[in-house]
Amino acid sequence: MSAAATHTGVRVEGLGKRYGQTRVLDDLDLEIRPGEFVALLGRSGSGKTTLLRTLAGLDPVEDGAVVVPRQVAVVFQEARLLPWKRVRDNVMLGLDGADARDRAEAALEEVGLAHRLDAWPLTLSGGEAQRVGIARALVRSPELLMLDEPFASLDALTRLRMHAMVDALWQKHRCAVLLVTHDVDEALTLGDRAVVLDRGRIRTTLPLTMQRPRRHDDPGFSAARRSLLAALDVHEAA
């Protein structure tokens, strides 16, 4: 079981996990400071999703120790909205208190969906649905927000807009974020630190210190991009 922490960051020590003969996570150590934005990269099958599911409490901790904050929220790749609840009610799901409705509406306004409060989820575009998912996570004021390839199925332009929105929301809420992604530019745009996972272990940690909001033509950006691609075994022709 993951214990509730006195500090509000994440600490993973010696986490191990196997499915049958396959070792998915192997003695993994990871720390996320309160308010830190960590981008987690790695090939398919490197254990990214298993790590996220363990931190979210969806998979049990078998070996090692995991400490996560009390308030954890997850945004999945598919928005996972309940199609039979209107947008507002999806965000309100599981909230209690007299102000739940106001809080949900405020969260939806933050993601730019104040005009879609009463819409049915099946009428939303992919980007809109994902923004509802983000509002549903933020309305719980999480200390740790986990995003599991949240923009992978969106078109390129929508994805860029979502990056700017997530950046702004994070600046405002200052929760710890773990972003699982395949997209190197996404990691470079948003992360304080990029962590590369390989065969269940952390292979590289790359601090990203470029000024925010980040621009792709920043020289520091291209340098970091090269290092990160090298860590992922992609070598660009010089």
């Binding site: 929220a73 999945f76 996972r80 799901l93 599981g94």
Partner: peptide
């Protein structure tokens, strides 16, 4: 099952 999982992460 993905919706049920989502419900668990929301602490329902």
């Amino acid at each position: 099952p993905k919706l049920l999982e989502m419900g668990r992460t929301l602490g329902l």
